[in-house]
Design a binder for these strands. Structure first.
Length: 436
RNA sequence: GACCCCGUCGUCUAGCCUGGUCCAGGACAAGAGCUUUUCAAGCUCUCGACACGGGUUCAAAUCCCGUCGGGGUCACCA
């Protein structure tokens, strides 16, 4: 039975790197029909905060990584002490009292030897432990150190595969020594390459957002983020980029993960998010958008026309990079007074188009049916009569109606805006009293 | 600095294990154009890489060695 674990420390948010480690562990567990164990590494009493535990758990849930078990290191101090005592009485560890420390620390005597470890991703890695100092097991305040708690936990929780970041590779010989000293069976190790920022080095806040919750706030879909993370250091083959998580479970294999560190590229994530956004069910997308629209005062809590909203979502869906783009781009559908972008006004509405606008309004009034096809037909006939280019009128009308030079097709916009609002917005640009 | 890991287009990668089918394929980005309704969507095209140097071999991105480059770790943090 495969048992893997993800062991975050609640001293901060769940970040991109952690999420990717969680993803690969979760995938491996699901692929092998094993268990995915969560272990909260909260031995640092000062820096660990319960709100970070909540934040991490919520982010994992949002990403869709359900866990089978959860444990907290802070509840296992007795166990760590028990094993430390064993090493002490076996003569493999000793106590030390430092003048500036409260109590005695328990320290592991590091035996000098060569260690060969097998890594599922990298193959054989060799270390000479003579360069490693004796390791503190239990600190003088009675709490265990990371490497010790980690070994005791992984062994006693029957973890079969330790899948973690590359940065732990040099912890592995230290831990291997502890497994041997304690008589524990060694798990299999797989060290994932790190995710780096665009400017090189570790992904950091300077380079961009690192917290998963930030990506959620920025309007990324969890499926898109997971798919993007999946493609960092792993590829399903056959030039496939968009891979459904259930498909990934079938195809994933840790041993095929790359060895090279990957750079986090927001542009590709954006593309990926757009792919998922355009394929997402419009009803579902509307549901995701509703809270934000209510918050902005764009729609009412009680009197919202869901069908109408879904139509608008469909209009913008292919273009959205993030969920948050929708309220920004579709704002003109929800407010009475359109905010006209000054640049757009200068570009498209600086000349007097009173006559053209008035004639267009007349066309709209004469339509047998106010629908997209008829609106376009009316417009086309007007342009023909005026003997002008379509775009000479389309762009000014778009700016007058939406305040923007870009957006969905104009005739759809007019249809969903409705005749009255369209006329009202056009009349503002008709000199000498538009009677709309 | 010591130790460890890594090195294919700007970025993510396929190919490497099992040398020839690779004058290296795909995706993102970028650039150009088309879409005579914009683009933030769509379509088409272009640009662009085996880090370098030695071997081994009839043949090397693929195997070996060295150099260089990048990253990580060296805490009574995790």
């Amino acid at each position: 039975m495969v048992r893997v674990r993800f062991a975050p420390s609640p001293t901060g948010n769940l970040h991109i790197g952690g999420a990717r480690t969680a993803l690969f562990n979760w995938l491996y567990a699901r692929a092998k029909g094993g268990k995915f164990v969560l272990r909260i590494e909260d031995t640092d009493q000062v820096r660990s905060k319960p709100e970070f535990v909540d934040e991490i758990l919520n982010s994992l849930k949002w990403l869709g990584f359900d866990w089978d078990e959860i444990g907290y290191q802070s509840k296992r101090f007795d166990i760590y002490n028990e094993y430390a005592q064993k090493l002490l009485s076996a003569g493999k560890a000793y106590k030390e009292k430092l003048p500036d420390k409260p109590g005695e620390a328990i320290i592991f005597k590091v035996p000098q030897q060569k260690i060969k470890m097998q890594d599922l991703i990298r193959g054989e890695i060799e270390f000479d432990t003579s360069v490693i100092k004796d390791q503190v097991l239990i600190k003088s305040d009675g709490t265990p150190t990371y490497n010790f708690a980690c070994v005791v936990d992984d062994a006693t929780m029957d973890i079969t595969h330790v899948i973690r970041g590359d940065d732990h590779i040099s912890n592995t010989p230290k831990q291997t020594l502890l497994y041997e000293a304690l008589g524990f069976k060694l798990p299999k190790f797989a060290h994932l390459p790190l995710i780096m920022g665009m400017e090189g080095g570790r992904l950091s806040k300077r380079t961009g957002a690192t917290a998963i919750s930030d990506y959620r706030k920025m309007g990324y879909l969890p499926q898109a983020l997971v798919n993007y993370l999946l493609l960092l250091s792993w590829a399903p083959g056959n030039n496939v980029e968009l891979v459904d998580i259930n498909e990934a479970i079938k195809l994933f294999d840790v041993t095929q993960v790359n060895k090279t560190a990957a750079t986090f590229d927001l542009k590709k994530l954006n593309w990926m998010n757009n792919q998922y956004l355009k394929n997402e069910d419009s009803e579902k997308l509307a549901d995701i958008l509703i809270p934000g629209l209510i918050e902005k005062g764009y729609i009412g809590k009680d009197n919202l026309d869901r069908g109408y909203l879904v139509s608008l979502v469909k209009l913008f869906q292919p273009r959205l990079t993030t969920i948050n783009d929708f309220p920004d781009w579709a704002d003109f559908f929800f407010v009475e007074e359109v905010k006209i972008d000054p640049e757009a006004e200068k570009k498209c509405l600086s000349q007097d188009l009173s006559n053209e606008f008035r004639l267009f309004v007349e066309k709209l009034d004469k339509l047998a049916e106010f629908d997209i096809l008829n609106i376009e037909e009316g417009f086309r006939s007007l342009v023909k009569e005026l003997n002008i280019e379509s775009k000479a009128l389309i762009h000014p009308i778009r700016v007058a109606l939406t305040g923007k030079t870009i957006g969905p097709g104009l005739f759809e916009v007019i249809y969903y805006l409705g005749k009255e609002r369209t006329k009202k917005r056009l009349s503002r640009w008709i000199k000498g009293g538009g009677d709309a």
